[in-house]
Design a protein around this nucleic acid. Sequence first.
DNA 1: TTTAGCACTCTACAACAAGGAGTGCTAAAT
DNA 2: ATTTAGCACTCCTTGTTGTAGAGTGCTAAA
Lengths: 343, 343
Amino acid sequence: MDVELSPRSKQILEAIIEDYIATAEPVGSSAVARRHALTLSPATVRNVMSNLEEMGLLTSPHTSAGRIPTEKAYRFYVDSLIALRQITRDEKKQIIRRCRQAGGGVSEILKETSKTLSSLSNYMGLVVAPSFVADVFRHIEFLSLGPHRVLAILVSSNGTVQNRLVETEEDITQDDLVKMGNYLNELMQGLTISLARQRILEEMKDEKVQFDRLMSQALQISKQAVDFEQDEIFVEGQSRIFDQPEFSTGRRMQDIFRAFEQKGILLQLLSRCMTAEGVQIYIGSETPVSQSAGVSLITSRFITSSNTVGLIGVIGPTRMGYSSVIPIVDYTAKLVSRLLNEV
Amino acid sequence: MDVELSPRSKQILEAIIEDYIATAEPVGSSAVARRHALTLSPATVRNVMSNLEEMGLLTSPHTSAGRIPTEKAYRFYVDSLIALRQITRDEKKQIIRRCRQAGGGVSEILKETSKTLSSLSNYMGLVVAPSFVADVFRHIEFLSLGPHRVLAILVSSNGTVQNRLVETEEDITQDDLVKMGNYLNELMQGLTISLARQRILEEMKDEKVQFDRLMSQALQISKQAVDFEQDEIFVEGQSRIFDQPEFSTGRRMQDIFRAFEQKGILLQLLSRCMTAEGVQIYIGSETPVSQSAGVSLITSRFITSSNTVGLIGVIGPTRMGYSSVIPIVDYTAKLVSRLLNEV
DNA sequence: TTTAGCACTCTACAACAAGGAGTGCTAAAT
DNA sequence: ATTTAGCACTCCTTGTTGTAGAGTGCTAAA
């Protein structure tokens, strides 16, 4: 950002951005002069605006409309101008209450978090759960559910539970299933899930094991149990985008919804965002989700007790209330980290 | 339905409905005469249409537009006129393949089912999972995840797995957790989840148990484990409603999305639909989800091995391709029942 | 009972005019 | 050297009018 601006230009730019965020209408010179009680005439403001336009910070939809901020302007605003609103005691309370009351497992907490983000920000809430495969193995257990059906339950030290129904060729008694469980628990103790998976594959090559019918079956089943892609994603408050006038035309909304139906995009997002600490802000075309749709994304990562990383965030129009959403996202991410690490 | 119609009127009504389903445009008298190679002049068709309008089966948006079917007409069409299209071998294959490959637990299968319904019908797919509380208890297990954290895992004989993280006041060793598990497994053997819940409450009143520190803790924890509302609902293919011209205006879409964000509505739907067997069809204002939005709903229930009931369905505009969607829903419901009962 | 003919209604679309908002430029004022 | 008032200009918005087309309803003939 090689933007060099006089204090007055900054002030005017800020006024325009905030006006536009509030109204979604192009803002004209007289509106700025009036609303901000600047001791300047519209004409002066116009000159400044003209400069800002040349610098690529403003555009006008047509000759005789006011001007609207460009992506570059939002970027500058967020980097240099913004006065973050403090998160209120009330909001804090609400976040804590809702995330806690979710009770249940990790998934339930994260889903409620996503809803909370949505309702506090009035945009869409997004949570991408941490990848299970990086978690540390805690426990595996097999239950017989019928002649050829075995339920494998896999627990990580985070408390994330995976279960999978496996069809077996032959009948296995519950006693044998317990033995298999003991064997595997021994085998995978202390490994991450992905390492555990490797260990299983190695073990399957072992000659001793190959001759032990029970053990080789155990490996077979558990291999299926660890082989999955578990990508939990919670997008909540989708209907809120209808509140935004810029999305009232179907076309852009469709883009957004399409994007969410492809999980891949969101996972890619996760991997991109999880390296950096703190609140990340993606504006317009910077946004990995749906570049064309004119949305911005504010995210922050959270960390579980096993040091795996997840992502929370808010998605709204580029014209979003950054100053209030950023603190909310920030606070929520920290809270979720704390909740998930709580003793 | 006290509709008495001549064969010719029926034929014309059917033609109009099918035309309108295909085009979403009001259909005029000459279009009917032409497209259906009826040996009738537009004028004659007009007379018939005029009658149909009087009977409340057609309306016209304005004087000089064609006519469109009313809800009553769709109802009559579905009840008496419709020629169901046979489900193709290809569709069958696709349904089977996708539902099977989902692997994993019940949830995964049902989610994939919902997606499959959506992509075959080109409308939205809906699956409401059977209520867990009616399932038969199979197994409970406790795992220590840290000083004061216990993970309770509850398995029903369907293979549905519930897990819940419980904070305990004092530390409990894994050994004790195993004992607690044994005790509770004994206690709840063969009961449904909801009965198991009652049993726990009864047991907590028992004096003998109250003096056994371990057992009373076990009850305390397991009470939390069975106390939840687990309503899994999968709505997939939401972006498809953008393809329907009648929803291009934001207002009606918003209604639909709002409805889906309130789970209550869908659960109410479940309870209403699950009593009846076979395919259920709800047209327009009959639809429990969002009466105002002009949507129709085609559902059928499925049954799990423990005789609990779930719901699959397709949601589209009232102007939906009933003749092809009905067989798809019918077949899929049967398949899912079979899959979930499979030995 | 069916059909041709015709007047009638209503929409959709385009062309046009008036009003308004906001700009850019120029020249005067500070 | 800035700031500001004045003013012409642009372009959107809204409303009006006119026309073409689609489709109906009615009447009278087949």
